[in-house]
Design a protein around this nucleic acid. Structure first.
Lengths: 347, 347
DNA sequence: CTGAAAGCGCTAACAC
DNA sequence: GTGTTAGCGCTTTCAG
């Protein structure tokens, strides 16, 4: 059973290649092809199991029915979940996804954009590292739909979906203050990316309003977790007055909790904790961790929605749409009222 | 700046298209093209930033430089991590990856195989659901390199990489017995897949050797976690004699621990726990969980190694290679000696 | 080394 | 509705 071509269908049915092609591309009506023939062709295609070659079609049309999805790392649970949800919705619309991991590396990302461009992807979903403004802008100028998420590039005018980082961090910090904490640190990744800057700003806003002093540790992300744990330990040792910490991302939170475990610091007695990003197993921790949960499903849905929208729209470069979604703070044991009864009992 | 074609290079350099193509494909020597010209062409290509169209090349050659990676769900941390590692190694060899999630659904998988076939992927990495033997065998018969991992299809003769599920489960169970537990349950997913069957068998072997009674719960996997938690709760209520549980997979373990938390069962006082699959945050749990860790890096490395090997080999259908890797049991607090001093102290 | 030419499978314009 | 044809960009054979 060898590969069928459009010619085989035409010959098998004793009609013209053209007709088959038109029917395949939904131009039957436009080209005044009889319904009867359309049905006959569709039935035959079913029977013999013909599937047009997307490669040949791609070469001819320049379209690929593929969406390029670039995230920091596909092994990150947040991105993996988003990828999965996007894949599902895209699939229903006949689009496939090619993912790739940027490692948040500018040069690698530029190269990956080229790879995707070569493959003629029809649209891009990018969680961009810094420094790729030029390349992304060129894509947009070339008429490519581009949607960013998680963070965005302020100098690039296109759709994006993010969460309200600043108010979320501000709320969480104020919440800690209301719970009685006054020496509140923030441990986050050093980054020029919008989401990290927003979180830091929100934290600082809250402290400034209350006249409290900020304690900030910005660590460089590295796959060497031990390095990050060690950095956090040193910070905690250097700042013994801290009674609460806000973590700017789940990886920071997880490293921080490890550092605290190693130092035998108790949560929340010695240090209250709130972390950005939620994970359901937070509930199983020695002290369940209060977390700022991102609306993952909604993010994925919005992202692919915006992209499909542009893909359909075809022509007009619509105004960039900026979607900001709300987070939800899941309050758990790691941030109970300072010196509360519950806190004292647990001693 | 429009898209460059091979003709533009030839014209720009005032040489023939053919020569450029030969040089591009590393056939310069074979075709007796002077080194001087090769250098000139390479330099020019660099300068103008020409990149051959993989689509046109694919149409012509039938090769795509793409590897299809099919896993149960790309959002599963185990698969996401493997995917990431494979992506990295493949990238270095000039291969791109297209991932897709099968949901362990037979029909969906068949369709996805077709999609990948249409895209002319050069090789397949599959963590297969049951029931796709025929389709996979057809791929192999068509000369496609196929590597399976995590589980395999006994009726399909091709390379695979798995772990030693049976001995691992047997060891873990025997370990629990040595720790003084005698009513040991196993909670796992109902599945005809090799890895699950191996784990169950190992557990039963250990019990039989010691003349102990098995208590098995096989749950159907569902994305509705609450359903699984509830099922486990009912099982635990129905079997109050249990003093230890072996979980057959991390999702089962995580649901089980949630069920136990809800029921206020203490680990390991009321129930000792060992789970297949490790996660570094297990250390942060109220009681750190003893886990059977898979050598993820090694698995990924082997998988892509086997595939690249076949991709290079070109011709001969080498003998199927079956790689079985060892797991490592990470002993933590959830499986301490029954009634041990440590155990009693913690009361 | 060159130049011409065929062909991968498909789309779509054109004349009928 | 059909049949023809060009062409997407590339590889590769063949004769020179």
């Amino acid at each position: 059973m060898k590969k069928l071509r459009i010619k085989d269908i035409a010959d098998g049915l004793k009609i013209s290649k053209t007709a088959v092609s038109f029917i395949l591309n939904g131009k039957a009506e436009e080209k005044r092809i009889s319904e009867e023939l359309v049905e006959r062709v569709e039935k035959y295609i079913q029977e013999v199991g013909y599937r047009p070659s997307p490669i040949a079609r791609g070469l001819r049309t320049g379209k690929s029915n593929i969406i390029g999805l670039m995230v920091e790392s596909i092994s990150d649970p947040f991105f993996a979940t988003i990828a999965r949800l996007i894949e599902n919705e895209a699939y229903k619309e006949g689009y496939r996804i090619i993912y790739c991991s940027t490692d948040n590396d500018t040069e690698k990302t530029k190269e990956l954009i080229n790879v995707l461009k070569d493959r003629n992807v029809d649209g891009y979903i990018i969680s961009p590292p810094p420094g790729v403004e030029k390349e992304v802008n060129e894509l947009i100028k070339a008429g490519m739909p581009v949607v960013m998420f998680d963070r965005y590039l302020p100098k690039v005018k296109t759709d994006y979906v993010v969460i309200d980082n600043e108010p979320s961090a501000e709320n969480a910090t104020k919440y800690l203050i209301r719970q009685g904490y006054s020496n509140i640190g923030m441990i986050t990744f050093s980054s020029s990316l919008t989401q990290m800057k927003g979180r830091l700003k929100g934290y600082k806003n809250a402290l400034k309003e209350e006249g409290l002093k900020p304690y900030v540790l910005e660590i460089d992300f590295t796959p060497e977790e031990k390095v990050m744990v060690q950095t956090i330990r040193e910070f905690l040792v250097a700042n013994p007055k801290l009674d609460a910490v806000l973590f700017g991302a789940i990886q920071a939170g997880s490293c921080g909790l490890k550092a605290m475990t190693q130092m035998k610091l108790k949560v929340p007695e010695d240090l209250a904790v709130i972390s950005f990003d939620d994970h359901d197993i937070f509930e199983l921790f020695a002290t369940p961790v209060t977390a700022i949960a991102q609306p993952i499903e909604k993010i994925a849905h919005k992202v692919i929605g915006l992209l499909l929208d542009r893909l359909d729209a075809e022509g007009g470069a619509a105004e960039p749409r900026e979607v900001v979604l709300k987070t939800k703070m899941k309050i758990r044991g790691s941030s109970v009222v300072k010196n509360s009864k519950k806190y004292l009992e647990s001693k």
